[in-house]
């Protein structure tokens, strides 16, 4: 991994390609009528939630206006699919103690999109003692805490205390990390930094650890052709201060992006010709590619501008309520 300014042209082509494919795939992101009853949330709510989370970020932070516009179009589409938030009120009434409707709703709430009934329901359910019972997955709990912050709610646990229990808190021996642990670690970083918006929250210890070991993980997962994880690792790389640019890794990821902009999650894209199968095999990694290339592009601009004081490129997108929630 070398330092340096990276390749803005390549990164922009990758974001444009990804967003173009995602735009064409809108039909597969549409929520079916049974979304609040018996549809599989992994095939409905999860893709839409990821689309919203990452296009919101790209729509605010990407330096190029036309890319921001196309990301905003997708974000607006996603909000429209929730029927202006009515969906969240229905989901919470259906599963009042589940975290996912709150996490999803918060993705939109951070952009100021609110729904009055959903707000009232969330205010009630998240005040319960039951809401504060520790959950098994500490990394996921960080996302719940962020959702509470985005919604302006009192956080049910101390962010720093939960973070301390995760991979990013423990900094495990780098050779022990299997696929699940690497996913966990990347999401610890995303939750701590609010998907790269608040990179200064990474401690010097975490920064040093990531800078040292990211190249070996990247090499491993590129070789395994686990493209979504490689993309997430490139996104984490781009959150580091004075972010390194791993030209070879970016070229390898660019090489698997198809002409239509899709990036397969693992190995080669399906060849069945079934568009639904292709969507499921590609939507996550294509979103991750757009996200990672956006963060890397911002890092390029910072390298161009010289040493950053704070995060000037990110000021416009910085998380609200930061002073209350910074661990």
């Amino acid at each position: 991994m070398t330092g340096g300014r990276g390749d803005p042209g390549l990164l922009d082509r990758m974001v444009r390609g990804s967003l173009g494919w995602l735009d064409e795939a809108r039909g597969f992101f549409r929520l079916p009528p049974n979304v609040t009853t018996d549809a599989d949330p992994n095939l409905t709510l999860k893709p839409l939630g990821e689309l919203a989370e990452l296009t919101q970020l790209i729509g605010v932070l990407h330096p190029r206006d036309e890319i921001r516009q196309s990301a905003r179009g997708l974000f607006a589409f996603a909000w429209n699919e929730t029927r202006d938030g009515e969906l969240f009120a229905e989901l919470i009434r259906g599963e009042p103690f589940a975290t996912y409707p709150v996490e999803l709703y918060a993705t939109f709430a951070q952009a100021g999109l609110r729904h009055a009934d959903a707000d009232e329901l969330v205010a009630t359910t998240t005040r319960l003692r039951g809401w504060r019972v520790a959950r098994e997955d500490h990394t996921r709990t960080l996302n719940v805490l962020n959702a509470e912050r985005r919604l302006g709610l009192r956080q049910h646990a101390d962010f720093a205390a939960v973070l301390a229990l995760t991979g990013l808190g423990r900094l495990p021996e780098p050779w022990t990390l299997d696929r699940k642990a690497v996913y966990g670690l990347t999401h610890d970083v995303f939750h701590l930094t609010d998907w790269g918006r608040n990179r200064q929250r990474l401690s010097p210890e975490a920064t040093g650890y990531l800078r040292l070991w990211l190249p070996s993980w990247l090499d491993t997962w590129l070789e395994e052709e686990t493209w979504d994880l490689a993309g997430e690792l490139l996104a984490v790389t781009a959150t580091l201060p004075d972010a390194p640019y791993d030209a070879e890794a970016w070229q390898r990821l660019a090489a698997v992006q198809a002409a239509d902009g899709s990036v397969p999650e693992i190995g080669a894209a399906p060849t069945s010709g079934d568009p639904a199968e292709t969507f499921l095999a590609c939507y996550h990694s294509t979103l991750v590619t757009a996200f990672a290339a956006t963060l890397a592009r911002i890092a390029c601009d910072e390298a161009e501008a010289g040493p950053a004081t704070g995060d000037p490129a990110l000021v416009g997108g910085r998380t609200p309520c930061e002073s209350e929630s910074a661990p």
């Binding site: 780098p174 050779w175 990390l177 040292l212 070991w213 190249p215 070996s216 993980w217 090499d219 491993t220």
Partner: peptide
């Protein structure tokens, strides 16, 4: 040293015990 340490991580992940 840092690069060789990265190689150690990579070798363990690949279960290439002799290299590690």
């Amino acid at each position: 040293t840092d690069d060789l340490s990265r190689g150690f991580v990579r070798a363990v992940r690949r279960r290439d015990w002799l290299q590690a």
